[in-house]
């Protein structure tokens, strides 16, 4: 079973985000980057399926050279080879243009299943997996917490409001990973050493056979006009003392002063 995993490099969730004044980007200096946490679940699931059924795990990302570090993490976990969509034309893409490029890259591979995180924790769009599936004309099950793979189909359990549902879909299909799907392994030292020698191919726009206006900022359906910081919250009231005295007071104030209850 050949599996493609779509991954993205994102700033560490501990990062304090600042907007770069006069731009639509954040301050990039001093940021440490990680493999998107939800993509880690996708990589882990791909590896578990490969261990059970054989086949190959191919990781695909899109981004500048630094994003290879996230790809190497996936390779160190055990993925077999990787592709990176490389070139200035790909930059500034919204979810739609990202998915268009990834879908085209996927068409050049042999695959039975595509896995990716349900969202990247930078732009939080929750779109790319579903868009890729739609563009490839294959089904997608979103926010999956349990996956069973059979011959020619999968059973995927996904989170819904107030519970879960199980969906059966024919392969090939796209599965987006939600937290809870598995516990991702840490790359081992030998894994890290091996990853350095694994194939990581840069793929250009020309290789994909796409036009420059189909990808990146030019191929996007939306654009960011401004980035802003959240409003600072004003310092609040602090209550100290005996809970038996202060809690009744606070509860009354929630109604009478804050008017939130």
């Amino acid at each position: 079973m050949n599996i493609i995993v779509l991954v993205k490099q994102v700033p560490d969730t501990e990062t304090r985000i600042k907007v770069q004044p006069g731009t639509t980007d954040i301050v990039r200096e001093g940021i440490s980057y990680l493999l998107n946490p939800y993509d880690e679940f996708a990589v882990e699931e791909a590896l578990k399926i490969k261990e059970a059924k054989g086949g190959e795990v191919v990781v695909i990302t899109m981004g500048e050279a630094r994003t290879e570090e996230a790809v190497r993490t996936a390779l160190a976990m055990g993925a077999d080879k990787a592709r990176r969509l490389d070139g200035a034309e790909f930059l500034g893409a919204d979810s739609y243009a990202t998915a268009a490029a990834l879908a085209k890259a996927i068409q050049g591979e042999s695959y039975d299943l595509i896995l990716c995180g349900k969202q990247a924790v930078d732009d939080d769009s929750v779109q790319v997996g579903i868009l890729v599936a739609a563009m490839l004309g294959i089904p997608c099950v979103n926010m999956v917490t349990k996956l069973e793979v059979a011959d020619g189909s999968v059973k995927a359990t996904r989170e819904i409001e107030g519970g879960t549902e199980t969906i059966e879909a024919p392969t090939p299909c796209v599965i987006t990973a939600q937290k809870g799907l598995n516990e991702p392994r840490y790359p081992s030292l030998p894994g890290i050493m091996k990853a350095k020698k694994k194939e990581l191919k840069a793929v250009s726009l020309g290789d994909l056979g796409l036009a420059a206006d189909q990808v990146g900022a030019a191929g996007s359906k939306t654009e960011i006009s401004e980035l802003t910081m959240p409003a600072e919250r004003a310092a609040g009231k602090v209550f100290e003392g005996e809970p038996a005295d202060i809690v009744p007071k606070v509860v009354r104030m929630l109604r009478d002063e804050a008017k939130v209850i």
């Binding site: 700033p11 969730t13 990062t15 304090r16 985000i17 907007v19 639509t24 954040i26 924790v121 930078d122 732009d123 939080d124 996007s220 359906k221 939306t222 654009e223 960011i224 006009s225 401004e226 980035l227 802003t228 910081m229 959240p230």
Partner: peptide, 19 residues
Amino acid sequence: TVKRPIYAGKAFASIKFKT
């Protein structure tokens, strides 16, 4: 025109549509 949180609300992006 819309505004949406990114980085789980550590910043906000104003978005325009081309379609």
